[in-house]
């Protein structure tokens, strides 16, 4: 039952992914690439790149397009529902209770405790992309784009979306 699989694949990252949109990226990858094999790491990278250049919430865009690739419009709807509904319903129903406890140290500790694990998952994912770039484009292009990217995104704090456009243009012109 493909819809059920899609539902579970997007439900899990979004109910354990404390720390907002970016925190769920490695969790989504672990479901759709590693566990279900719906996409390759490279395709996942393409989805992530397009999601980053377009406006709007990233997790929702990713679940929409991956759901669509796997099972058409129904798949897209199920994936978005699994992403958005559970935490939103929690918020609406528990609002009074949560308002009272949102400053409680335990509640505060939740996202802090999960963060190191997210960092490890994110590091693993970073490594897979470096590896895939090395295999596909060779070490020279990887270093040129990597260094340019680190300078722009990390040092200069330019928006990653611009660098995705740079990467696309560079790739179209120089990488075969």
């Amino acid at each position: 039952m493909i819809y059920l699989e899609i539902f579970i694949a997007f439900l899990i990252p979004n109910i354990i992914g404390y720390g907002g949109g970016p925190a769920v990226i490695p969790l989504i990858e672990s479901e759709v690439v590693t566990r279900y094999g719906w996409l390759t790491t490279k395709e996942f990278g393409e989805v992530l790149a397009i999601a980053n250049t377009l406006p709007g919430p990233i997790a929702t865009k990713m679940s929409g397009v991956i759901g669509y690739e796997v099972a058409g419009w129904g798949g897209a709807a199920v994936a978005i529902f699994a992403t958005v509904a559970p935490s939103l319903l929690l918020m609406i129903f528990l609002v009074g209770f949560l308002m009272k406890h949102k400053d409680h140290p335990k509640v505060q500790a939740l996202s802090a405790t999960v963060r190191p694990a997210i960092a490890v998952l994110m590091a693993g994912l970073t490594f897979r992309f470096v590896e895939s770039s090395y295999v596909d484009s060779g070490i020279i292009h990887t270093i040129i784009l990597g260094v340019a990217g680190i300078y722009g995104i990390y040092v200069k704090k330019w928006h990653a979306g611009w660098f995705i456009l740079v990467g696309l243009l560079y790739g179209a012109l120089f990488i075969r």
Binding site: A49, M122, T126, F129, S137, L145, G146, F163
Partner: peptide
């Protein structure tokens, strides 16, 4: 080529 060029940038972002 575009698909390949974007991979290192995604790696930096991550």
């Amino acid at each position: 080529g575009m698909a390949k060029g974007v991979v290192p940038i995604i790696a930096v972002m991550l």
